[in-house]
């Protein structure tokens, strides 16, 4: 599971839909691996406007990274000084894989597991929608 994916998923339980605490999930006991991917600056630039940046900061903090800017700066691909930040974001969002660990809903406390890089959001029958 790429770091990027944490920005798109919330608790799968229907009663948590819309609850403020159901997104982002809390990431705990996470094992990380860096997996090399092609650097595509246009992709990073294109994805940034659709990210919930406070959620990026919160998940990064769960994983022990508190070095991100609190506000996302304006980025321009033609400005070479932006390349370092874009590469850093590529490393974080695309290359950082959450391989094992837990994802916890802070609304209902349900615990989901990540195994071999695949997050499992299947629910037991009594919680399924």
């Amino acid at each position: 599971m790429k770091f990027l994916t944490t920005n798109f998923v919330r608790c799968a339980i229907k009663s948590c839909d819309g609850a403020v605490n159901s997104f982002p999930l809390k990431y705990s006991e996470i094992e990380l691996v860096q997996e090399e991917q092609d650097f595509q600056p246009e992709f990073i630039l294109g994805i940034l406007p659709r990210l919930d940046w406070p959620a990026v900061l919160k998940v990064a903090a769960d994983l022990g990274n508190t070095s991100l800017p609190s506000q996302l700066p304006e980025l321009d691909i033609s400005d070479p000084s932006n390349e370092i930040l874009l590469k850093d974001l590529h490393t974080l969002l695309i290359e950082t894989q959450l391989v094992q660990g837990k994802m916890i809903c802070e609304n209902c406390n349900h615990v989901y597991h990540i195994k071999d890089s695949i997050p499992n959001f299947l629910l037991p029958p009594h919680l399924a929608n």
Binding site: K2, F8, R10, A12, Q37, F43, F121, N129
Partner: peptide, 18 residues
Amino acid sequence: KKGNLQVLQCDLTTPLKR
């Protein structure tokens, strides 16, 4: 290494934000 794909084990789209 091109392309950006992620897999979610889940029922339909239940863990996706609206």
